[in-house]
Design a protein around this nucleic acid. Structure first.
Lengths: 149, 149
DNA sequence: TTGTTATAGTTGACGGGTCAATAAATTGGG
DNA sequence: CCCAATTTATTGACCCGTCAACTATAACAA
């Protein structure tokens, strides 16, 4: 019989808890955000990056947002159908596609961003500013660790 | 095409960063965990809960792990095909299905749990025990906040 | 009893992510 | 110059989660 160890909560030890919390958090966060903001967090990030960077290739966009190239292709397809972005060929590189934010996309982005602000305020309610900073630093450390696994 | 170098510094402010980091973390965590442990984190959780609780209905299992009933059904289908769990009818309730861990499932669970330990060790490397506790507390607070949105 | 309501589980459609294979264009070494 | 290797984007297959519709059973009230 494998070691009993059955704690009162589901997790076997505190390390487990971290993993479970991260998973639970994200699974609840994404749908709620989308319902609030009317757009998925990833798509909003794409629009924001596009706004920050101006017209760029899908490739650089992909690296900025940190998702798979295939996912980027499909998101952009959807965003293009909604008229929020435009895609054109890159005169300097026949392989690349230059993606740019349309005016409509810019408007959508701004209004969603306000929603996002309210959402994040609620998410972080009760956190002092320095706690937020501390949390961010810890999450960054985790990100750093994961990259080396 | 594995992702490369997604900095989370596209964020407009620190609150954004938190959200981006959480998302990035989970998106990287799950695939890496699965490759390491040979089983998805959710499925391992199912096996562990089954071990802790003994034979239970899918419903209680679902509430424990915190995912959709449909997802549970499909996970259990897969686990059953692999011989890790067994499903039988509940004599006390004709609607319910009693799920139990097979011997093979128990063995799989124990060995995966060791892998998980190593994985978490790497993930949390550089964290002092009290930092882990602090992190867990903060994530719990976030979880609490999200439930009220 | 019977009919209504609630609960357990399944299934299908969908969104979001991964990886692998592929086409087209660029790059670079012989 | 040319051929091989690399890079960009796309597509298909798959996993994992959601929600909504459905079936079967249970619980309960009239």
């Amino acid at each position: 019989m494998p070691i009993s160890e059955g704690q009162a909560d589901g997790a076997v030890n505190r390390d487990d808890t971290i993993f479970e919390l991260l998973q639970e958090l994200n699974q609840r966060l994404s749908p709620k955000f989308e319902r609030h903001a009317g757009i998925s967090f990833t798509r909003l990030r794409l629009l924001q990056e596009l706004y920050r960077l101006g017209p760029v290739s899908q490739n650089t966009l992909q690296r900025k947002v940190g998702i798979d190239a295939a996912a980027v292709t499909r998101h952009l397809k959807g965003l293009e159908e909604n008229g929020l972005i435009a895609r054109g060929s890159d005169p300097a590189d026949g392989r690349a596609i230059l993606v740019s934010l349309t005016e409509r996309g810019q408007n959508a982005m701004s209004s969603c961003r306000e929603e996002k602000g309210r959402f994040l305020e609620q998410l972080l309610s009760g956190f002092k500013e320095e706690e937020v900073a501390l949390l961010a630093r810890m999450l960054e450390r985790l990100c750093g660790n994961i990259k080396q696994i």
